[in-house]
């Protein structure tokens, strides 16, 4: 089972396909779950405290806005942990954890810079034909990672 970073990190489709074919999707939900299940934090709604933008300094300099650094505290560790990544490139309508374009640009770049892991660059399908190509590309990519559990 491989850990596959999904972009957009909030994508239903990618989360589903990765899990369906026996791998673990690394997305926003995991990072948020970890925080809201941590007792003693009191920073609703996401339990992200002002400490998070400081943690984000590892991936973005101090002159980068707090919202970018805070989001990088969510994604940075998962980017480093990932065994593979899938990027849907035209994710223009993504919000919340994926609502900042500057963060998103940095996340994609850091994923592409990880030349040691396989990466699939893809786009959203807009027809049945493209739907088939989309699913087939992902299936093929995930199969090549090996070790997929039968979900």
């Amino acid at each position: 089972m491989a850990k596959v970073f999904i972009y957009p990190a909030t994508s239903l489709v990618l989360s589903d396909l990765v899990e369906r074919w026996g791998h673990e999707p690394l997305g926003a939900a995991l990072a948020i779950r970890e925080r809201i299940q941590t007792a003693s934090l009191d920073s609703p709604p996401l339990q992200m405290t002002p400490e998070e933008p400081k943690k984000g300094l590892k991936w973005a300099a101090v002159e980068v806005p707090a919202g970018v650094r805070g989001r990088m505290a969510l994604y940075g560790p998962m980017i480093e942990e990932a065994d593979a990544a899938i990027i849907i490139n035209d994710a223009d309508l993504a919000f919340g954890c994926m609502g900042c374009s500057r963060t998103n640009e940095l996340v994609m770049y850091l994923l592409r810079k990880r030349t040691d892991i396989p990466l699939l660059d893809i786009k959203y399908p807009s027809s049945e034909e493209e739907g088939i190509a989309f699913v087939a590309s992902i299936k093929e990519f995930l199969a090549a990672l090996g070790g997929g559990e039968d979900a």
Binding site: L12, P125, S127, I132, F134
Partner: peptide, 11 residues
């Protein structure tokens, strides 16, 4: 994304 689910289903 729910708008494109039918394409995914087809796939």
């Amino acid at each position: 994304e729910s708008r494109i689910l039918r394409y995914i289903s087809r796939g």
